[in-house]
Amino acid sequence: MRHGETDWNKKKLVQGRKDIPLNEYGRHLARETSYGMRQYQIDLAYTSPLRRAKETAEILLEGRNIPLYEDQRIQEISFGSYEGMSCVDKTKEENLAFQKFFQDTGNYIPPEDAESVEQLYERTGDFLKSLEESKKLKDKNLLISTHGAAMTAMLNRMRGSLSVEHFWKNEVPPNCSVTIAELEGSGFKIIREGIIFYKEEVKHWKAV
């Protein structure tokens, strides 16, 4: 699942590795999602160490005796020096350069202190591989609390595509959207995608 809303999401600021907490609306979305997720058995959970993902997982697991583990491999992509600036401002050169991440991903060039889409694919893929190969996790139901780009990278891998050019073919997952996947043989198969357990309409986010 993707984390709940933050103030930076609301203001459309580049978030990346900036450790921005949930806002009250984001906590509300997480609570509504927790009610819907009660129907599913969860044996253990993994979360990005960033607060917005971890708090989302903690809200969802509240009152349930389920262990929660942090994993650096599922934190959000790093945008380096782009973090904190507007996603939609078209008056500055650096803002236009960043917007390629969403609008022309194949030609997106990260700053020197940032991470590439290929690197994101590599570390999230390593995380999924570790789940696949774990005998301890066989027949377990896992919750993974992560971020928009990190979640998209994992889902793209499950779809069998590591294309950078078409990275956002299925758009950015809405806040607190849930996808269910099952491990079949040597890979994951997506069973249901983009499940929303709250009543509010949270639209797919795009940089425009």
Rank of each mutant, 00 (worst) to 15 (best):
T146C: 06
Q119E: 15
L29A: 04
K92I: 07
I77G: 01
Y198D: 15
E115C: 11
L22P: 14
E115Q: 00
Y82N: 09
T105N: 05
G80R: 02
T33L: 15
E32P: 09
H204E: 11
V178S: 04
K203Q: 15
E83Q: 05
K10L: 09
E133Y: 02
V178C: 04
E93A: 08
H28A: 00
T33C: 13
A181Y: 06
V164S: 04
N170S: 15
E93N: 14
R64M: 08
K18D: 01
K199W: 06
I109M: 15
H147Q: 10
G63Q: 07
N65Q: 09
Y198Q: 02
G84K: 01
R17V: 05
Y198C: 08
V88Y: 14
Q72K: 12
I196R: 09
Y40I: 10
E171H: 06
R17E: 12
D71H: 13
L22S: 09
I144N: 01
P110S: 08
E133T: 12
T33I: 14
S145M: 10
A97M: 08
C87M: 12
L50G: 01
L128D: 01
K136Y: 14
R52V: 02
K203H: 08
R27N: 06
G84A: 08
I20W: 00
W205Y: 04
S145K: 00
R192M: 14
M1H: 12
E93G: 02
V172C: 05
P110D: 03
Q15S: 02
Y108H: 00
W8C: 10
G106Y: 06
G84L: 10
R157S: 04
M1E: 01
E32W: 05
G194K: 06
G194T: 06
H204K: 14
R2I: 08
I59N: 03
A53N: 00
E70N: 12
P67E: 04
T56I: 06
E76H: 09
K11Q: 15
